[in-house]
């Protein structure tokens, strides 16, 4: 029983559920709820992106593109053409999945810097299309989005969104945890260590990489659709290259190949700019210092480095006991 709780699939998920359930006690007003919702939405993207970067070892500098396509797809279908938001979101998600599949097939053959370049290029193309096609997207000034509604029920207000995003984040984490503990997950980790080695033991590397690329794109697209409905407004800033970098930074900061690391990274990087406003003009400097400090002292990311530290301490103390006995 205890050993089952200690495994991330039950213990970690339970811990996350408790945090989500208890957090509202500390949220004094709508502003704090707003931050929590943004953390949740970013965390969903990062959990997906982490499958790609952390587990499969493939970089993507274009995920803001998928996020943005999700956001704009929902915005355009629901607000301009009056589709029901849920149908708009599902259609958009399917379209993004298909696009990720088509784009992923050729570019995932590339490795390292070349893959980074290709995904970067993809993101920039999406950005350019969105800023130029202003008849549909509103151009650089953005587009207003209707609130999310299912049937006659309209999702509005930070508190309702908090629970919706909380449940979706739990679902995303649960899906990701199950995926990496499945044969597919093991295959992904194998091809992360050595693609050639993985192919030798019969893993179809190309197919697995493509699968995880599509999954991460779907996570980003869904989060994008929700973010658009939640904010009520989308601008191309969410599709820009800088946002892609921000997402990758969240994953690296929290810890690669750690699902909960992605959540922690998203939480840290979303709340830090809010906390650092006290430094006024020095805000960005302090932000940079925090990032550098974390990478120097916790090089594997916050969660894995902490876990390791904890592990070695525990091992050391059990060694002591063994020695004295």
């Amino acid at each position: 029983m205890l050993s089952r709780l200690a495994s991330p699939r039950t213990g970690g998920l339970l811990a996350l559920a408790i945090v989500i359930a208890l957090l509202p006690l500390a949220l004094a007003n709508k502003y704090f709820y707003d931050i929590a919702v943004l953390v949740g939405l970013n965390a969903i993207v990062c959990v997906g992106l982490n499958l790609l970067i952390g587990y499969a070892g493939q970089i993507s500098l274009g995920h803001a593109g998928f996020f943005g396509l999700g956001a704009y797809g929902s915005a355009i279908l629901a607000s301009r053409y009056g589709w029901p938001p849920l149908a708009a979101m599902l259609t958009t998600t399917l379209a993004v999945a298909a696009l990720a599949y088509l784009v992923g097939r050729p570019i995932l053959r590339l490795k390292g810097h070349y893959l980074a370049m290709a995904t970067l290029g993809m993101g920039i193309i999406v950005y350019m299309v969105i800023t130029t096609e202003d008849r549909f997207t509103g151009g650089p000034d953005g587009i207003a989005v209707v609130p999310f509604s299912i049937g006659g029920f309209v999702l509005q207000g930070e508190r309702i969104w908090y629970w919706v995003v909380g449940v979706l984040l739990l679902a995303a984490v649960w899906l990701a945890l199950n995926l990496i503990e499945s044969p597919t997950g093991r295959a992904l980790r194998a091809l992360h260590s050595s693609e050639v080695g993985a192919e030798v033991v019969g893993i179809n590397a190309a197919e697995h990489k493509l699968l995880v690329f599509v999954i991460s794109a779907v996570f980003a697209s869904v989060a994008g659709s929700l973010a658009a409905h939640y904010s009520g407004f989308v601008t191309p800033g969410k599709v820009a290259f800088l946002h892609s970098i921000e997402l990758v930074t969240m994953v690296v900061f929290g810890g690669m190949a750690s699902i909960f690391g992605a959540v922690v990274g998203a939480a840290a990087l979303t709340t830090l700019p809010q906390l650092l406003t006290v430094f006024e003009d020095y805000e960005m400097m302090v932000f940079g210092a925090v990032m550098m400090g974390t990478m120097i002292f916790l090089p594997r990311g916050v969660v894995p480095s902490m876990a390791r530290l904890f592990q070695t301490r525990r091992n050391a103390s059990s060694d002591d006991r063994a020695g004295s006995a």
Binding site: K30, D34, L38, A227, F233, V234, T235, G237, K238, P273
Partner: peptide, 10 residues
Amino acid sequence: DAEKARTFTK
């Protein structure tokens, strides 16, 4: 950033 503007306004 429109998202930041929104959060700061809140």
